[in-house]
């Protein structure tokens, strides 16, 4: 029988501080939504009990997502850079593994959002010549990200051709 195959997870995770950053992001999304739901219930309805119960469930779900989602993210988002390739895994429901050979990498950028800066984090974006979008490694320590970008840039500059 032929052996069954699977893709092993990439070796590295995001920086542990990324959990706090994702939590802040989740809060920024969940708090206004929950607040709007509560306000709408209070102002625009007759406040029936069944709707109240539904509202409580909804708000609890929002709270749960703030607590749970960043931790799940931390478990699912993984990355690895070898001599020959950049390898990432993302997503929980739809899991996506992406591999870009080093010889086809065109540019490497680090991006630091305002909230990320507070946590000393940075994203690394690896672009190839494909129109299908770049590979993104989220929530790395900013020094590590800078070092990684530099290393990748050095490797790609030594590759001949236009990477198409």
């Amino acid at each position: 029988m032929t052996p069954s195959l699977r893709l092993r997870p990439p070796r590295h995770r995001a920086d542990p501080r990324a959990v706090a950053w994702w939590t802040v992001q989740a809060l920024l999304a969940a708090v206004p939504v929950a607040a709007a739901a509560i306000a709408a219930y209070w102002l625009f309805t007759e406040r029936p009990a069944w709707l109240g119960a539904l509202l409580i469930v909804f708000v609890l779900l929002c709270a749960a997502s703030v607590v749970v989602v960043p931790r799940v993210y931390y478990r699912t988002e993984r990355w690895e850079v070898t001599e020959d390739a950049v390898y990432t895994r993302t997503g929980l429901l739809t899991r996506t593994w992406r591999i870009a050979p080093m010889s086809r990498v065109q540019t490497v950028d680090t991006v630091r959002g305002p909230v990320q800066r507070l946590f000393g984090l940075s994203d690394v974006t690896v672009t190839t010549a494909s129109a299908a979008g770049p590979l993104k490694i989220e929530g790395l320590d900013e020094d590590l990200a800078a070092e990684l970008a530099e290393r990748l840039t050095a490797i790609t500059q030594n590759t001949p051709g236009d990477a198409t």
Binding site: L7, T94, T96, R98, P101, R104
Partner: peptide, 9 residues
Amino acid sequence: IGLTVSESL
């Protein structure tokens, strides 16, 4: 110039 494998639920 790259491979992607994806798997939905």
